[in-house]
């Protein structure tokens, strides 16, 4: 009889622990958002200069990778789908496929995945190292809220910069697709543009952009929280970084699925286009 009782108590303890972690993470996220917004008006929460530095690091320095990978993704998409489309109908339909899939899903999703790997991992490693070397504790004992000082500027920078990166990625992918379509498959400029206009509307773009804001919130909060909660040695920083990226990717893809379902539901009701 002891085994089932132990199983139930272990399960209870596990659920308890997850609820505790979830509670702490929600509190952490709330503080990051609260201090991020307050910091815009109160220069004492974090230095303005830090926001600029993080915007440069997360946004401006992500430009080359976003442009390059966006271009390649767009071009590969066209190269790989055009032959199949051409088998069943006019090849220029690929312009619509690329336009809709890039703007609605591929652009925001891939930009977020690249962002998580480049920026999110950096956040966890940076903050994890600070936690291990007692820098976060030092801030707290100086009466400086560590979440306000360290997380809020990173949070704001990411929320502003990931959508910007997504726009860049989208644009590069559309250009890559266009060049591949017109040069490789001899689709004329006019027919490419015509199909694009028929398939793509503004809501595809704004929906993608809205998703990228959600992804930015997920990446920053997960990666900063994992960094903040590192205890022990430098090895733990590596482990936390790996966990942060895995959790971020799962949450990004899961939330993408949920948002797509909600959008479709709203679209059926006629609330959105």
């Amino acid at each position: 009889m002891a085994a089932p009782t132990k199983l139930i108590s272990d399960l209870g303890a596990l659920v308890n622990r997850y609820i505790e972690v979830l509670g702490a993470a929600v509190k952490f996220g709330g503080a990051a958002i609260w201090y991020g917004v307050r910091g815009i008006f109160n220069r004492r929460i974090y230095p303005r200069h830090d926001l600029i530095v993080h915007m440069d690091y997360t946004g401006a320095r992500s430009t080359p990778i976003m442009v390059l990978l966006g271009f390649l993704v767009g071009a590969s998409l066209v190269i790989q789908t055009t032959p199949s489309i051409a088998r069943y109908g006019p090849a220029e339909l690929v312009a619509g496929v690329v336009g809709v899939s890039v703007l609605r899903t591929l652009g925001p999703l891939l930009a977020a995945i690249i962002f998580a790997g480049r920026v999110g991992a950096g956040f966890t490693a940076e903050l994890g190292t600070m936690a291990v070397s007692e820098e976060i504790l030092a801030l707290d004992t100086m009466g400086i809220h560590p979440v306000g000082y360290l997380v809020a500027p990173r949070f704001l920078a990411a929320v502003l910069m990931l959508p910007a990166c997504t726009v860049l990625f989208d644009l590069s992918a559309l250009i890559g697709g266009y060049l591949a379509g017109t040069m490789q498959f001899n689709i004329s400029h006019e027919s490419w543009m015509d199909v694009t206009k028929q398939f793509v509307n503004l809501s595809n773009f704004t929906f993608g952009l809205a998703k990228s804001v959600v992804f930015a919130i997920i990446i920053t909060l997960v990666c900063c929280y994992k960094g903040f909660t590192v205890r022990g040695s430098g090895m733990e920083v590596g482990r936390a970084t790996m966990q942060a990226i895995v959790i971020s990717l799962i949450l990004i893809i899961f939330s993408d699925f949920v948002m797509s379902m909600v959008y479709n539901f709203l679209s059926k009701l006629g609330i959105v286009e």
Binding site: R44, M130, S133, E135, A138, T141, M142, G143, I144
Partner: peptide, 25 residues
Amino acid sequence: GVLFQSSALLNGLTVAENVALPIQR
């Protein structure tokens, strides 16, 4: 004030900026 075992200076700030931090705050 606390002097930590690892000194816990913020590595992204200069020595002067570290000392200025609590005063600015």
